[in-house]
Simulated assay, not measured.
Amino acid sequence: MAPSRLVPLLEQFDWACERLTARMAGPVMDSGDGSRTGVGPLTDEEYFWEPVPDCWSVRRRADGPGRHATSLAGAGDWGRDAAPHPHPSPPPFTTLAWRLSHLSEMLFLRADHTVGTHKLTRDDHAVSGSAAEAVAAFDTGAKAWRNALLNIDDAALDTVGRCTYPHGSDAEEPFIDIVWWVNQEVLHHGAEIGLLRDLYRAGTSSGPARS
Rank of each mutant, 00 (worst) to 15 (best):
H113Q: 04
T114R: 01
T114Y: 02
V115R: 06
G116Y: 04
G116A: 03
T117A: 00
H118T: 03
T121C: 00
R122I: 12
D123I: 08
D124V: 03
H125A: 09
H125N: 10
A126F: 09
S128Q: 15
G129I: 05
S130Q: 09
A132C: 14
A132Y: 14
A132L: 15
A134P: 09
A134L: 13
A134C: 12
A134R: 09
V135W: 09
V135L: 06
F138W: 15
F138T: 08
T140L: 13
T140W: 11
G141I: 09
G141E: 10
A142P: 11
A144L: 12
W145A: 02
W145P: 12
W145M: 08
R146Q: 09
R146L: 09
R146A: 01
N147S: 13
L149G: 01
L149K: 04
L150S: 14
I152R: 00
D154M: 06
D154V: 10
A156P: 01
L157T: 06
L157D: 00
D158C: 02
D158P: 09
D158E: 13
T159F: 01
T159E: 04
G161F: 08
G161M: 05
G161T: 07
G161A: 03
R162V: 00
C163R: 01
Y165N: 04
P166N: 02
